[in-house]
Amino acid sequence: DLTFMYSVTAPTGKYENGGSENLGLGFWTNQFQGFGYYYPVADKSSALMLGLTYEINGEIKDSDVKPGNRFTLEYGISQYLSERFELGIIGGHNWQISDDKGSDVFWDPSVRDRKSTLAFTAGYWVWKQRMQLTFKYGFDYGMRQRFKNDALMLNLTFVTNALTGANKKNNTP
């Protein structure tokens, strides 16, 4: 399977140059992503994933600083242990690939930031093929000029079948 995505991140959240309580980054980002999934067994109970992201960053609000663009490589493996229970491991590396630019750049722009991430997931279909609950724990390592993150995430995914034409009563086409 292949997926492609384009997304825009707007500079939302409180941001003030030099502020210590910033919640946003203060700049626009455009992202181009492509992911591939390979299933080594016919029933697709095992999956290998590889993803690429290219990030183009805009100028920071109220300053002459344009952060460098970034490239991300993500990879993962998942395995269903039953019809409803899935475990997975996800890794990724993010590299700044162009220099920070602008007259307000006071640091050495040739030192580019980077970080790596590792995450573990467990998912369970509470309502078979309609509602999944997924738990993820991830952490960063190998940072240079980046904050270290540890993350806990709980996702609830509901599949509506709105675009499939499936019968609501017995869930068949």
Rank of each mutant, 00 (worst) to 15 (best):
P109T: 08
F120I: 11
A122G: 14
G18E: 14
W125G: 08
R112V: 10
I56D: 04
F158E: 02
D43C: 06
K101N: 11
G102A: 12
S45Q: 09
G36M: 12
S98M: 10
F135H: 07
A42W: 02
K101I: 10
N155E: 03
G34M: 11
S63N: 08
A119Y: 05
I77L: 15
E16Y: 11
Y39W: 11
T164F: 14
D99R: 09
I77D: 11
K168C: 06
L152V: 04
F35Y: 11
W127N: 02
I89C: 06
V159F: 10
N17T: 10
G123W: 15
S103R: 15
S20V: 15
T172D: 08
F135R: 02
L118G: 04
K148G: 11
K44Q: 10
D104R: 03
G88V: 09
G58S: 08
Q96L: 07
G142Q: 00
F147A: 08
L118P: 03
L163K: 11
R84I: 15
P11Q: 08
E74P: 01
F85E: 13
W107S: 13
F139W: 04
S82D: 14
A122R: 02
N170Q: 05
G13Y: 01
G34C: 13
G165L: 07
T172L: 15
K101M: 12
G36H: 01
S78L: 08
Y75H: 14
M143E: 06
S82C: 15
V41F: 01
M143C: 09
F4D: 01
Q145G: 07
Y137M: 08
F32P: 11
F85I: 14
D43A: 12
N57V: 11
V126L: 10
L73C: 02
G19H: 10
K14E: 13
L156T: 01
N22D: 15
L2T: 03
S45V: 03
N171T: 10
T164Y: 09
P67V: 03
T3W: 05
V111M: 06
T164G: 06
L133N: 01
Q31Y: 05
H93N: 03
G13D: 05
A119I: 08
T157A: 07
Y137N: 08
N161K: 04
D108Y: 07
Y37A: 13
A162N: 12
F120G: 10
N69K: 03
W28R: 15
R114W: 00
V111E: 04
M5H: 02
D43V: 09
A119H: 06
F158N: 01
W107Q: 08
N57L: 12
I90W: 07
Y141I: 03
S116I: 02
S98G: 10
L163T: 05
F35S: 13
T72D: 00
N161G: 04
M143Q: 09
T29L: 07
A119R: 05
L73W: 02
S45P: 02
F106C: 12
L163W: 06
G76I: 04
Q79R: 14
G138M: 02
F71E: 01
K136W: 03
L152P: 00
D108T: 15
L48Y: 12
T12W: 04
